Simulated assay, not measured.
Amino acid sequence: MNSMNDSGVVAGPAPDPTSRDRRFRGLAGTGLVAALAAAAATTLAAALAQAAGVDFELPDGGESIPLPGFAVVTGFFSVVGTGIAVAFLRWSTRPATRFVWTAMALTAVSLVPPLISGANTATTTALLGLHLVPAAVMITTLARSLRARTG
């Protein structure tokens, strides 16, 4: 009697761990450069809005959002977005598609606080636009980078 123990596994070269590490480091580096660009673009847009007369004053406490605050918050959430992209590259079969949908959903959620803040119309409108500036930079850059790294 013949018995065959075939698990369906085909022998081949083992995946190169350094190649995989390079993909992750490359995506992380791209994300960090994009985060700096997004922070600079958002801060510049906020400065232009402020020069046009937007006060960025929120009703809870009456203080204005300082320009460096835009850079810090944008940088922080851009790094978080880069981490999400790296996670999708590691654990998803379609990382670019999953990242774009997740990032768009998170961007939509980020638009809620300006809408419910109670700030004047100019401030609310500017804040909404300032959420879209870094989203445009980060989502397009990271999605393009994910597509390039996955073939």
Rank of each mutant, 00 (worst) to 15 (best):
T42H: 09
A87Y: 13
I139A: 07
A35G: 06
L130V: 03
L115A: 07
P95N: 01
A37N: 09
A11G: 14
T43R: 13
W91F: 12
T107Q: 09
R22Q: 13
L127E: 05
V10T: 15
V54P: 00
A96N: 00
G129S: 09
N120M: 07
V73W: 14
L44I: 13
F70C: 10
G129P: 06
V10N: 15
R25W: 13
T140R: 10
P59Y: 11
S64C: 08
N5F: 15
G69R: 10
A40K: 12
T124K: 06
V80A: 13
R149S: 04
L132W: 00
T30P: 02
L115S: 05
S19M: 13
W91N: 14
G26S: 08
L89H: 13
L142D: 01
A143N: 01
V10K: 15
G61K: 07
V80L: 12
A148N: 07
T30N: 06
A52V: 00
P68C: 06
L127D: 05
V80E: 10
F70S: 09
P134D: 02
G26Y: 05
I84F: 13
A46C: 08
A35K: 03
P113R: 02
G29H: 09
W91H: 14
D16F: 08
M1P: 14
T125H: 08
P68L: 05
P59A: 10
R23E: 11
A28Y: 13
A126G: 05
T97C: 07
P17L: 10
F88P: 04
V109N: 11
E63M: 14
G62T: 06
A85H: 01
I139G: 06
I84G: 12
T150R: 10
A122D: 08
